[in-house]
Write a protein that binds this DNA or RNA. Structure first.
Length: 596
RNA sequence: GGCCCCGUGGUGUAGCGGCCAACAUGCCUCCUUGUCAAGGAGGAGAGCGCGGGUUCGAGUCCCGUCGGGGCCGCCA
């Protein structure tokens, strides 16, 4: 080894010890007759002092060293002279007095500062990711990622779960996200698909009798990227035979609690995790992944406004739309400009506009008078209507009612966005709270207007709730699934379901999805066949591991917790992926590039 | 597929129709023995992503294009 100690581990207990360190020049402070170098390695930073008398050779090395040079330093750990301790550094009570040093490798001047504070363009960071990852925060994120993975493996191993690998080269499926395809050299015109998740394999493992499976699995989806979505990502995938909803939710709750206690003792979280139904979540928050750290709950006012004089609302209601909205406490004083901004937010999300009512004046709502209601459209609304809405929304004088009228889907999307916008603007979301919750009872199916057919909300193996089975033929849209999501602070951390283990029910669901026996056999024949050989009832869940890590690292973008993420346009600037291939490679794969 | 923001020395920004494109930081040289974003003095370094247009004149306005980012759609 070229080093005896790590820079970051040195402390007062090492005083007097001779050490050999190796690391990078984090910062160099040249006082002419005395040079300080902050030496950084994987574990941290320590100050090295170079005296021309104590180590003339070492001093010459320090004189020539520059940022990011790789140095080996021999020296003695010493207590810093009184008054020169650095409380900002974990090793700040000591320093290493260099007696010898050599340059292990010089370095070009880095394109950006290796420092947490420098705000560098994403492209540059990714192109020089090895420098970006040297920054303490990024470095720490990758370490935390590893520790979380280990903690999860230990937790599940203790509970009898077995980590089993599943193939990366698998078969394309018609349902779900766009597949990444890998052409087969041996079979002309045929393709492997990279797994969107190990879904089918893990269910087959249940049929194989392993009962408790998990995997920290790489997954691939060829869809557009977001802050919380990469084409290549990692799932904590889990499947459990003979388990029911409560077993899986309890297990996941226990797991998250143990991780939070261990990794983020500074945060609060609810116990037990609240569970709300999909319907309730949509009604109260307009989304299936609500941020429960703050209120601003949504309300429906359609019934109150059934006889409204306001033409815009009347028309929306006549067309089957809803008038929904929320109350912004203390918002009555909002400026025209602020309300304009809120209007922009909802318009960007598809709403036609935003109607506001400021409740002015003093006293209870009973005494609310026409003059107390300030609104651009006040003249179309009676005081009674406004009072009723205010009562339902729990509003008081001094508050602001904000209304959107549209198809439920659009109104919810707009109000969810408005709610998050307001929370961000007003700083309502406490960063020291993990507001975990489970959203349950998702609908099984969703009607697609464009394609004119039903789609699985989760995936085709999700079991319907037993009490809703009679609706399967009569009113498929109302059938609820035995599906659940884990949500935290507005992030969908994961989801899963109890699966169908009965071949006949599976075929009914396939039929509803427009898959006849032939097509079903073509795509899922292996599953159907496996289920004929004694499939145990089973269920599972998959958590977005990158999102979990980001949550624990206090990052709002999963790229910050991935070593080598991709850009928004799915490229990898360091290697240049995706790259071109030779004609010979194409020929072997039986492919030809079509000129557009 | 749609909407929005950004693109100026190595890095981060300012400049928003007209003197040699400014500031900070980094870099280089010199000075400096207790700093820790060390300090002081001096210096080099960009013609404003790319292409076209408007104009007497364009980082500055317009169109296109490329790249980065945010959002909607998409993501079983």
């Amino acid at each position: 080894m070229l080093k005896s100690h790590a820079c970051g581990e040195l402390g007062t207990e090492h005083i007097g010890r001779e050490v050999v360190l190796a690391g990078w020049v984090h910062r160099r402070r040249d006082h002419g007759g005395l040079i300080f170098i902050d030496l950084r390695d994987h574990d941290g930073i320590v100050q090295v002092v170079f005296h021309p008398q104590e180590g003339p050779e070492a001093f010459r090395v320090a004189d020539a060293a520059r940022s990011e040079y790789v140095l080996q330093v021999r020296g003695t750990v010493a207590r810093r002279p009184a008054g020169t301790e650095n409380p900002n550094l974990p090793t700040g009570e000591v320093e290493v007095r260099a007696t010898g040093a050599r340059v292990l490798n010089a370095a070009r001047t880095p394109p950006f500062y290796v420092d947490d504070d420098s705000d560098v363009e994403e492209l540059l960071r990714l192109k020089y990711r090895y420098l970006d990852l040297r920054r303490p925060r990024m470095h720490r994120n990758i370490v935390v990622r590893h520790r979380l993975a280990k903690a999860i493996r230990d937790f599940l191993t203790e509970r009898g779960f077995l980590e089993i690998e599943t193939p990366i080269l698998t078969v394309p499926t018609p349902e779900g996200a766009r597949d990444f395809l890998v052409p087969s050299r041996i079979h002309a015109g045929r393709f492997y698909a990279l797994p969107q998740s190990p879904q089918q394999y893990k269910q087959i493992l249940m049929v194989a009798g392993f009962e408790r499976y998990f995997q920290i699995a790489r997954c691939f989806r060829d869809e557009d990227l977001r802050a919380d979505r990469q084409p290549e990502f990692t799932q904590l995938d889990l499947e459990w035979s003979f388990a029911e909803e409560d077993d899986i939710l309890s297990l996941i709750e226990e797991l998250m609690v143990s991780l939070a206690r261990c990794f983020r003792p500074d945060v609060k979280f609810p116990s037990p995790f609240p569970r709300l139904t999909y319907e309730e979540s949509m009604e109260r928050y307009g989304t299936d992944k609500p941020d429960l750290r703050y209120g601003l709950e949504l309300h429906t006012f359609s019934d109150i406004l059934a006889g409204t004089q306001f033409g815009v609302f009347r028309q929306v209601l006549a067309e089957g739309g809803e008038v929904r909205g929320l109350c912004l406490p203390g918002g009555a004083e909002a400026s025209r400009r602020q309300i304009d901004e809120m209007t922009e937010v909802v318009k960007h999300l598809g709403a036609k506009g935003l109607v506001s009512f400021a409740l002015m004046g003093e006293g209870g709502l009973d005494s609310l008078a026409e003059d107390d209601v300030r609104s651009p459209v006040a003249r179309y609304f009676s005081v009674e209507e406004v009072r009723h809405m205010a009562l339902r929304a729990g509003a008081r004088r001094g508050d602001l009612l904000l209304l959107v009228a549209d198809r439920p889907k659009v109104a919810n999307r707009a109000l969810d966005g408005l709610r998050r916008y307001l929370a961000r603007r007003l700083g309502l979301a406490d960063p020291k709270t993990f507001s975990f919750c489970f959203v349950v009872d998702f609908p099984l199916l969703e009607w697609d207007e464009e394609d004119g057919r039903w789609y699985s909300v989760n995936h085709p193996f999700t079991a319907p709730k037993a009490e809703d089975l009679p609706l399967l033929d009569s009113d498929p849209g109302r059938v609820r699934a035995r599906a659940y999501d884990l949500v935290c602070n507005g992030w969908e951390l994961g989801g899963g379901s109890i699966r169908i283990h009965d071949r006949e029910l599976q075929e009914r669901v396939f039929r509803l999805l427009g898959l006849g026996p032939e097509e079903a056999r073509a795509s899922f024949g292996h599953m159907l066949e496996a289920f004929e050989f004694g499939a145990p009832p089973h269920g599972g869940i998959a958590l977005g591991f990158d999102r979990v890590v980001a949550l624990f690292c206090d990052e709002d973008d999963i790229r910050e917790v991935m070593a080598f993420p991709k850009t928004k346009s799915a490229t990898e600037p360091m290697t240049g992926a995706p790259g071109p291939v030779t004609d010979e490679q194409l020929r072997e794969l039986h492919l030809r590039i079509r000129e557009e």
